[in-house]
Amino acid sequence: MLKKQHKILIILFILTIISCLLFLFWGITRNNYGYNIPRRINKIIAFIITGSAIGYSTIVFQTVTHNRILTPSIIGLDSIYMFVQTLIVFFLGTGSLVMVSGSINFLVSLVFMLGFSVIVFYIVFNGKKDKLFVTMLAGVVFGSLFGSFSTFMQVVIDPNDFLIVQDKMFASFNNVNVSILKITMLILFLSLVYGYKNCDKLDIMALGRDISLNLGIAYDSVIRKFMILICIMTAVSTALVGPITFLGILTANISRQILKTYKHSIMITGAILLSIISIAFGQFIVERILTFRTTINVIINFIGGIYFIYLLIKEGRL
């Protein structure tokens, strides 16, 4: 049983490497070698960071909420990110330091997103029993509130400024912020180490609060830790490439479907690899085959959606 799952993981790992190599070396000639390779490597690092953040946070979020159709995007971090970007352009203009300098923008966005999640968690959630869904509801409400604020400001600003804001609205790997790659790598690495160390707790937490407490897991405080971890990861990946959490619902469910296990370490690894494959492959199609005539969102949703429908029909259930 375990053997089969390890085999699937190995296959996924090989596919990950193939898709990254394909992205790296397609269309490389002796002349453009020096220009392209370093840029593409940066992009691949961004794929890995984003893929890991999405894969991990979605699976954990679904387990913690006992719901397989949710993604961390419901907390409203995407809206906060857009709100911050619009706010900066609205008050400081597109030429401001915060907008031009990637690392300052990253820091500001990160601080706002984490600040928002901390406020929501400590005021609404407060580690109390049964408050998790109220917290998510608060996230949804705040998300649409800040979404409306952003829309309002976007309508008022200069159309040229709006183009800059619009650029931030969609996930994009085309201008990965090189200056923040190292720091995001570090944050993500530390979160993943902590996250993987606590994976066996998740296996039990999937069985609910009573059983977890019975087996000696401080359910409520562990959930709070995981939620903070999820927020950090989502915030980092959003600040790096923009809102892309939609990918999680596909890769997390596909990972659960093909691995058929309760072990989170395996499930999460599967989801991470699948996310990296989808991003790398999607970006490959966008850049090399369609030469930027569409965005990666479209590609991933198209392919993922088809696969998802196939799964639904084949299994007859989720």
Binding site: A206, D210, I211, L215, T261, Y262
Partner: peptide, 22 residues
């Protein structure tokens, strides 16, 4: 207790082995 989430892919033996977690 009476109500438990048990709609995950877990065999009976694996469930019982969680009892050894503490």
């Amino acid at each position: 207790r009476q109500s438990n989430y048990l709609n995950i892919k877990l065999t009976v033996r694996e469930l019982i082995s969680f009892g050894r977690y503490p």
